[in-house]
Nucleic acid binder design. Structure first.
Lengths: 137, 137
DNA sequence: TATTGTTATACTCTATAACTATA
DNA sequence: TATAGTTATAGAGTATAACAATA
């Protein structure tokens, strides 16, 4: 079961990365861009927690997106230590285009299932995606 | 959906690795050991194809298992280029113990679902785990 | 004293090319 | 010539600790 989960994820990830490549993005940068576009105005710490990545990895991701002109760092008015990551106009456009491609790819990947099966799969994956935290064997 | 799949897999993988650590194994080495124990008498090339790893990675994995005395390389009688990977007695014991732990962990991880739901999940993951190959977007 | 972003470092993983011995 | 195993190497990805500015 865990083996199937790993393999299904590997295909899903590979396909998503392949689809995002023409947009100059990967799943990681796409996820950051998605949150920057969303209007949440996340700090780098927020991104770190949501994406479960180390803060130092967020730095590199945002460096990349910023050098492409897709996002910018703004000082957080509430906390001068923190940066808020927001999408530029170019970032919003790039994300809309990328999202279109990702949606089409997901239809191709999960589209063979019925609506009900997709709902079931989503519900089960969501349950599995919850942190156990009590991973005390 | 792909996001949930990735996160569910991350938890599954982390839990499996945590469970295998006391046995001195990781999911990779556990998978190799499982095939070595199975009686299939796989060549390194077989392992490479089944686990979808590069042959050079198989070398390192088997080096590790061999240095622990869990598997050994035997010349393939049908092809003197090839090695057949077989488990030692210690390897069989280690695998049986590890498998027990993994089974318990899978019950903990997937056990909240009904039998029918687990069947559905397995079937869907199996479908997703099939190579698309026509990944022509 | 604790936290945010940053840098540096090391360690694992992955991908690739070359080499040998066999086929 | 093609293939099995091996080696070496370079690139990702990941984890960790330390630091300056701020809370």
């Amino acid at each position: 079961m865990a083996f199937l989960l790993a393999r299904a994820n590997a295909f899903s990830l590979a396909r998503a990365n392949a689809v995002l490549q023409p947009h100059g993005l990967k799943v990681r940068s796409y996820s950051v861009l998605a949150l920057a576009v969303s209007g949440v105005r996340p700090t780098q710490r927020d991104l770190s927690e949501f994406l479960r990545l180390d803060p130092s990895q967020i730095v590199a991701l945002i460096d990349g997106l910023e050098s492409c002109g897709l996002v910018s760092r703004e000082p957080d008015p509430n906390d001068r230590r923190a940066n808020v990551v927001i999408a530029t106009d170019a970032g919003r456009e790039a994300w809309a285009a990328a999202r279109e491609s990702v949606s089409l790819a997901e239809v191709g990947f999960f589209g063979a299932f019925s609506d009900q099966d997709r709902e079931r799969l989503t519900a089960m994956l969501r349950a599995l995606a919850m942190a156990p935290d009590d991973a005390s064997d």
